[in-house]
Design a protein around this nucleic acid. Structure first.
Lengths: 240, 240
DNA sequence: ATTACTATTCTACGAGTAT
DNA sequence: TATACTCGTAGAATAGTAA
């Protein structure tokens, strides 16, 4: 499980670190929720539950036991039908699942990237000291960049999300020349890192990188106390 | 089997038999989608995929094969990493799942009930001919009810959803008296049945019924060509 | 390096049934 | 009626590798 799920700490329960909930259990939880199990108790015998889950009565029964065992569902075992209600922990599982689907069909145009802090070879500072970049960032991104970049290496599959980014319109930072050399253009997207406004940038025509650079009005490493290999989440804003 | 039919029309649903997609496969689809597999191809080797799914490389590989087999994912098997993209059918699966979670968290203020048409003993016509009811419905629901009700028997677990309904504010139709007898009050909620405006009604203090009655400005049985035991979907509007 | 076959392990399903 | 136990077994997951 590489992705760090949203963890709203409103119900700080004494529950264990919420060991992985299997897809089968999520499906079961979802069915209970669809019947109103978040708001009210739901009367549901194991045979009915079985047909909702397309499985046998025995398996449905066992599934309920699992859910109860994991604290995701509370049960009143009446004489006739059992009554089920989703617990706050169960609700968190559902919310996380819902959030995942919200991201997939996101209306709020954000790409969530997770990666780790890497140290570059200090070029970030050199580049972001160039007046040609500084003036463009100030004009187009609305802040004066701290002279340095935070390198974020995307881990494994996360790299795919760069394709989503590149497909969206970016703020174009133009190439420019000094007396010594030429500095290439970059694409930039407004972003947030741990809540701080920043910009995610990629040099033009970089195709196979797994590193994205972050610039900000402040020195992120110190203001966020970041060390190499620290995990970070980057929320990049994209629009059409 | 693998005939991928392009499906340009949104409304023309995938008429494919679409054998049940298991929760495990849905989870896999979801992970691909989170990496951008709806918009773009996603580079994902089976080991990376395995860790996303918290399973082994072999199982991840097999899962991809299943998804391809079922036409939910398209694959380019390159030399290095395979590239995956979710097909229109796969997208439908994800949309359905998303819709389920949307319902759970009631961003749509609608309770969806499914059931079957039942014939009452003709009391519906008797009641809905009473001026005391007719005038109240006209005033409070905005239409003159056809003299008769459509009985919808909720099947099995659907009955639980009535509890959701009862917990929401309803239009209150008051009890009234004639010279012969007293007619009890009912609760009503605006609703739609096969797109037609109607109202779902429940007598006050009915607790253990599995039948909900539907009234409308028209004779639903004929205008919707409904026979006994026909399945119907009822979308009841609820507000706070 | 990949993917995915075959063989093996073992989980989890469902039949039968106790409660 | 229910739920849920034991237990034999099908099929899913993994190990070991081939390609």
């Amino acid at each position: 499980m590489a992705t760090t799920q949203e963890m709203p700490s409103e119900t700080l329960r004494a529950s264990r670190p919420s060991d992985p909930v299997s897809p089968l259990e999520k499906e079961a939880l979802k069915q209970i929720a669809l019947l109103g199990g978040i708001m009210e108790q739901v009367e549901l015998n194991s045979s009915e539950f079985a047909s909702l889950l397309a499985t046998s009565q025995q398996t449905a029964s066992r599934r309920i036991l699992e859910l109860v065992e994991e604290g995701l569902v509370e049960r009143d075992l009446g004489v006739r039908k059992q009554r089920l209600k989703i617990t706050p922990q169960g609700l968190e599982v559902l919310k996380a699942e819902h959030a995942a689907y919200q991201r997939i069909f996101e209306l709020s145009e954000t790409v969530h990237l997770t990666g780790r802090v890497r140290s570059g070879v200090g070029e970030g500072q050199y580049y972001m000291s160039q007046d040609g970049y500084v003036r463009q960032f100030r004009a187009k991104m609305g802040f004066t960049p701290y002279p340095g970049t935070l390198n974020v290496e995307l881990s494994g599959p996360e790299v795919n999300k760069l394709r989503l980014l590149k497909a969206r319109p970016a703020v174009v930072i133009e190439r420019f020349q000094t007396e010594e050399r030429t500095f290439g253009g970059v694409h930039a997207w407004p972003a947030r890192i741990s809540g701080r406004a920043c910009a995610a940038i990629l040099p033009n025509r970089t195709h196979y990188t797994r590193v994205i650079e972050v610039i900000a009005p402040e020195h992120l490493r110190s203001s966020l106390s970041l060390k190499d290999d620290d995990p970070v989440e980057l929320e990049v804003e994209v629009r059409d």
